[in-house]
Amino acid sequence: MAADPRPQVLAGGTDFMVEVNYDHRRPTAVMSLRRVDELRGWRRHGDRLTVGAGLRYVDMLESEFEVSAPALAQAARTVGSPQIRNTGTIGGNVATASPAGDTLPVLYALDAEVTVSSTRGDRVVPIQELIVGPKRTTLAPDELIVSISIPVSKGPQEFLKIGVRNAMVIAVASVALVVDGDNRHIGCALGSVGPTIIRCSEAEAMAEAEIDWDRLHLPDPRVYETFGAMCAAASSPIDDHRSTSRYRRHGVYVLATRALMRAFEPGA
């Protein structure tokens, strides 16, 4: 393992330390953000939330945050164990850019914008442009994720995650569904079923056209499964030691169907 001369930016460190403990990474310099308080908080201004990159998963479980970002809160609750949720951060989840990162499908579904900072100044990047592959981002070596901006919840939000155990498990497949009742928009994104998070644009457009937006109902109950099938078709899963591509695609179908059913009751 070649030593990396650049300082490693340490947020929660939960991914980083596993690599160090197992000799997959040899740090020579570390810049810890653990006590940079300005990265820790979140604030609401108007209809948007600015979430500090250092916000821990446990902080997202607080009721005030949950009201504004229910799917993100639910995703945070599925992350690892209490110990991990007390340590890991949303900024770390983004920077690690694992397709199994639990908060990422929610951030994709919400069209999150990531503020990135360096000595050259700040830039704002849509999350789907920041993450370009499994554990690959467009972050420059000297750039740091400062905050993430998402819209405040304006409708039902769901996050469902399949794991082979009832707790503390890496996602085999996950689905985030967010509804913007004001703008009559649906966002849906899939985790663990492709090299990056996958956005389900065609399924979203189909469902948006079928929903009775005045009542937030779905007149045609066949649409639930059509939606699930379109999301499954958008997925691009692989076989690995955690599951099979066939099951993952099927799982997306079931989760997306259920997510839409939870968000919109049937009937005109």
């Binding site: 639910q74 609750r77 599925t78 996050f159 469902l160 995650k161 399949i162 794991g163 155990r165 009832n166 707790a167 503390m168 498990v169 996602a171 996950s174 079931v254 989760l255 259920r258 059913m261």
Partner: peptide, 10 residues
């Protein structure tokens, strides 16, 4: 329920 923390159950 089955699925536990992942809140997948119907």
């Amino acid at each position: 329920l089955p699925g536990g923390a992942g809140r997948t159950a119907d």
